[in-house]
Amino acid sequence: MTDNPDLLETYRTMAAKQLAIGPLAFLNGSAGAGLTQRANRLGFDDITISPRVLRDLRGGGTAIQLLNQSLKSPMLVAPIAYQTLFAPQGECATAMAAAAQGAGMVLSCQSATHMAKVQQAGEGNATWFQMYWQAAGRAATLKLADTAAATGFSALVLTVDAPVNGVRDAEITAAFRLPPDVTAVNLTNAPQPEFAPLKSGESLLFDRVASCLPNWDDVAWLCRNAPLPVIVKGVLSPADAALAVTAGVRAVIVSNHGGRVLDGVPAAIAALPAVVDEVQGAVPVLMDSGIRRGSDIFRALALGASAVLIGRPVMWGLVVNGAQGASHVLRMLRDELEVTMVLAGCRTIADITRDCVHLKR
């Protein structure tokens, strides 16, 4: 693999050959026509790096502090569900990879592995737990938060941009269904709401599903009552970012779910600057969706992100070579970030500021 100039692309290609059509559609597929998924990548092409030269770079590095967590680089593994679809050890292998590289990991509440096992495999490095608002309401959501806290997680990542699944053409075409041995084991005992049969003229989505969805008052309630800091993931609008800060969240993640939910929304990297400007440093702003190179991470940091989340690329490594493959992907991205920093004249992450890049449009 070392003779390929784009190792990450090699991982993607090899993973596509190794996965069955269903899991591959689940991993790589997008919502709708894939406009947003493509925009996530093209958005980085609109940002050029403006390097400075002849600077003193001695003693530099990529280490950061994020919500009282020390990371060797500004990277976390994004929450991805059902990782045993991609490798037998699933989330445990990913946790080992993150621990090996000093990266953070956000464990999906739809993990196919019990959260305690993942914590043990990652030596406590899987410190954030991603969750959705539970359909049964506040009590059920708080119970899940309490379980995460008791298991050793240090923050809750409340994902708010996917109250329902997007229309994912590739999964529909592949007739993807979870195998019987792959389930969301951490939600097995979660209570479910009970509904009477639909009445004439009643909408399943707008009446039944909508009645279970949270609002900003619920987020504020969770921030007040949860045993851990709450981070909101899935924000593209500056107005929503402001509401999140008012609700009491400790960080905001700019994300369009990797283009998997609503097709036609802006690229996450394009939405990032306005959210950063709106928040004005009140809380850290992170981003995900579309990062494929260390230079992409540099661009995101220059536009105000405190850190980034890496999703599909880590899974490609996991498919190809388990924990070692996932670890290699994280190491490659960190190495590329370090090279970019040196060539751009940035000694530390704090040196990566908005004047380090130029927006073409």
Rank of each mutant, 00 (worst) to 15 (best):
A135M: 08
A135G: 05
R138D: 14
A139E: 15
A139F: 07
L142S: 03
K143M: 06
A145V: 01
A145M: 05
D146W: 05
D146P: 01
F153M: 10
F153N: 02
F153Q: 03
S154R: 05
V157K: 00
V157D: 02
L158C: 07
A162L: 13
V164E: 12
R168L: 05
E171I: 02
T173M: 14
A174G: 13
F176S: 06
R177L: 15
L178H: 04
P179L: 09
D181R: 06
V182P: 01
A184S: 11
V185C: 08
T188P: 05
Q192D: 10
P193A: 10
E194M: 14
F195L: 12
F195G: 07
P197V: 15
S200L: 15
G201V: 08
E202I: 08
D207P: 04
A210C: 09
S211Y: 06
L213Y: 07
W216L: 03
V219P: 02
W221F: 10
C223F: 03
C223L: 06
N225R: 15
A226R: 02
A226N: 02
V230N: 00
I231G: 01
V232S: 05
V232G: 03
L236K: 00
P238W: 07
A239E: 15
A241T: 07
A244E: 02
A244R: 00
V245S: 12
V245F: 08
A247M: 13
A247N: 13
G248F: 07
G248Y: 07
A251F: 06
I253E: 04
D263T: 06
A268E: 03
I269V: 11
A271E: 01
L272G: 04
A274G: 15
